[in-house]
Nucleic acid binder design. Structure first.
Ligand SMILES: NC(=O)c1ccc[n+]([C@@H]2O[C@H](COP(=O)([O-])OP(=O)(O)OC[C@H]3O[C@@H](n4cnc5c(N)ncnc54)[C@H](O)[C@@H]3O)[C@@H](O)[C@H]2O)c1
Ligand SMILES: NC(=O)c1ccc[n+]([C@@H]2O[C@H](COP(=O)([O-])OP(=O)(O)OC[C@H]3O[C@@H](n4cnc5c(N)ncnc54)[C@H](O)[C@@H]3O)[C@@H](O)[C@H]2O)c1
Lengths: 215, 215
DNA sequence: TCGAAACTGTGATTTAATTAACAATATTTC
DNA sequence: GAAATATTGTTAATTAAATCACAGTTTCGA
């Protein structure tokens, strides 16, 4: 039973994240030949509750076969309709150092609607080479390459002290979404979607809760 | 004016994260010779409001010089008292592949109360070598090394298909905090603090909001 | 010396996210 | 085919987080 609204409202960020995570588990289920899954099973695979799973799925307007659970294949497809763009989106990695290379290598292996089609750096030993399977361009060709290849998303892995400057260039070049892995919080115009993740903060948080366990 | 409670309640996770982020900005301020900072200045450096900053600082029981803003040095120290352990904590990286190496290289450079003092792998070409400045041990010596070096935190960067198994070994070895960078959600006993971060999910979220901007 | 201005600290309020509760529905069992 | 069981979808209640609103200080300027 597949029923999806023609006009989706924008989903809460956390729901979008969970849908992405559910999809990965569901694809795994498919590989194992599992065709149906209950909300509590999906919940157990992630750290949450059956109610939360049902609510997330309700958000995207999919409904199950009552009492049989969700059809895994259909659910994967519906999540795909929500998360993916028909024709895919093009992605660039900016700063192809240790983290940029690790990310690119990992990502390029995955089948996905997101294609890393360029990397950028200022290091002349990297420019014009193919690194992690993707061509590296000089940063000063950013705008040109972004336009000709219709790149809409950038992954920022440059050193902290050039992060703000490079971010401004990305905005100027017409990037629509920015994933910032540097430790510097960025300012971008409202119409550019920005997500930031700081590994060091995460590890410091773990350390805090190791030192001060809850209850 | 430095007034800290003897017994802290456990802070909300988001507050702990923000404190870690504030600290980094504050250290930067110190380097630039800035001795005092207002809540709205700190807020501007991060993506939040002056009230939020004041509330976070209230949580840790620090109070400013009225009308002069917060003393940067003191605030750094108070945040340190909250986040850091007196004698530091020892950390191990499990799976010293692309991501593990990037992380280790980056982290080892930082002055911090968290010391990466061992890495573990199963690849015999890596074992017993020093990689990213840290000695790599065979995974089967995990328990022994964790005990002798009093390692309490593990960073998990092994391939997805061995993540669960290795996590169980880490728990068994007595790890108290686990930062999981694999794409597999883990189950650990309640007394082990677990944080998980999935880069792919983050990028998929950015893609979703690029495709479906808010309002 | 007395406002006015600039910030902080915090109770009250609002908003957002999660969880509980349960009616509706399909399936199995006897 | 009726009762028992399992599971969903959704409304209502709860909890947690963020924001508002403002009184209380300190400083400044006239
Ligand atoms: N490595 C990690 O695990 C880790 C963890 C947390 C945060 N980070 C952050 O990620 C960023 C990159 O870390 P890394 O370890 O990969 O560093 P790195 O030094 O290995 O790589 C940085 C790369 O950026 C390039 N670069 C420098 N200036 C540039 C510019 N203006 N435009 C384009 N490219 C430029 C360099 O040539 C280099 O290739 C840093 O900001 C760091 O704070 C990394
Ligand atoms: N590279 C990235 O940017 C990235 C992004 C998202 C998620 N991840 C996740 O991080 C993990 C590591 O990614 P990577 O790109 O570094 O992979 P990688 O293959 O480069 O590294 C994996 C390392 O783990 C070692 N290993 C394998 N089995 C092990 C075991 N049982 N115990 C200890 N070590 C073992 C391998 O020898 C190798 O050195 C994966 O689970 C991946 O899903 C990586």
């Amino acid at each position: 039973m597949h029923q999806s609204n023609d006009y989706f409202m924008t989903l809460p960020e956390r729901t979008v994240e969970r849908l992405s995570e559910y999809r990965r588990s569901l694809l795994q289920c498919l590989e194992e030949g599992k065709t149906h899954i209950f909300s509590h099973e999906l919940a157990n695979l992630h750290h949450n509750t059956a109610v939360q799973v049902r609510r997330d799925i309700m958000f995207i307007g999919y409904t199950s076969m009552q009492r049989k659970g969700y059809d895994v294949r259909e659910l994967v497809d519906v999540i795909g309709e929500i998360l993916d763009s028909e024709m895919g989106l093009n992605v660039a990695v900016i700063g192809i150092g240790n983290l940029g290379r690790a990310f690119t290598t990992y990502f390029v292996g995955k089948r996905s609607k997101l294609n890393i089609i360029a990397t950028f750096d200022v290091d002349t030993t990297k420019i014009d080479r193919v690194i992690s399977g993707v061509k590296c361009y000089p940063l000063n060709r950013l705008k040109e390459v972004v336009e000709t290849h219709q790149i809409s998303i950038a992954i920022l892995t440059v050193p902290a002290d050039s992060a703000s400057e490079v971010a401004a260039q990305l905005v100027e070049a017409g990037i629509k979404g920015l994933m910032n892995f540097t430790t510097i919080p960025l300012n971008v115009p409202n119409e550019v979607f920005l997500d930031e993740y700081d590994m060091i903060t995460s590890v410091e948080k773990v350390a805090y809760f190791v030192k001060s366990p809850r209850e």
